[in-house]
Design a protein around this nucleic acid. Structure first.
Lengths: 95, 95
DNA sequence: TAAAAATACTCCATAGGTATTTTAT
DNA sequence: ATAAAATACCTATGGAGTATTTTTA
């Protein structure tokens, strides 16, 4: 499981549409489809109900949504923490 | 930035030694070295002080450690949430 | 000088693309 | 009929390997 897959999963959860979600993630529809399938394969669980439009989350997908969001958010904080340090250094050098 | 890279980063932070950290991550020393370098390149910041043994975290690396740990932990919860759902379904079917 | 890290290369797995087919409205 | 998802196929990137060359304690 990688952050990229979680981002794809969340984009689809929000857009409920592969084409729009793919666009948001700057990839193509088939790429997103593959990404979601590979995540489902790894977790050994379908995350979306197929064969009905619009696409819907399964119970497992629903359970994943919150934690996935927190994980992505946490990764954002991690990156920001590093950036903050860079700025701190830059600031110090300026003085 | 991917979870794999954060795992590698944390393993090195704990082991302070590429060979041991790589072993822990089930990869080889040069692979870990590359992984860390690519993370540093992406963040545009050195995370470890080189040219001194044992290897030590930079300020940026130190700032990353906590958030990285929380991110990995959060990803674990995400996976567990899905597993719990699977078990819930299995339980229901058994009844 | 004996460990550890970096580097140079090689290979292959897979993320992501295009084209097409299948399926649900 | 038409819009969306899945599938088949292809390519290129980069993750990870082996072998070797710096390093620094």
């Amino acid at each position: 499981m990688e952050l990229r897959q979680l981002r794809h999963f969340l984009a689809l959860a929000e857009e409920q549409n592969f084409i729009r979600a793919a666009k948001r993630e700057h990839i193509v529809q088939s790429g997103l489809s593959n990404s979601i399938h590979s995540l489902e394969r790894e977790l050994e669980t379908p995350l979306y109900v197929r064969g009905s439009r619009p696409i819907r989350l399964t119970a497992a997908g629903f359970a994943l949504e919150g934690p996935a969001r927190r994980t992505i958010s946490s990764a954002g904080y991690a990156q920001q923490a590093v950036r903050d340090t860079r700025e701190a250094i830059t600031g110090t050098l300026r003085i």
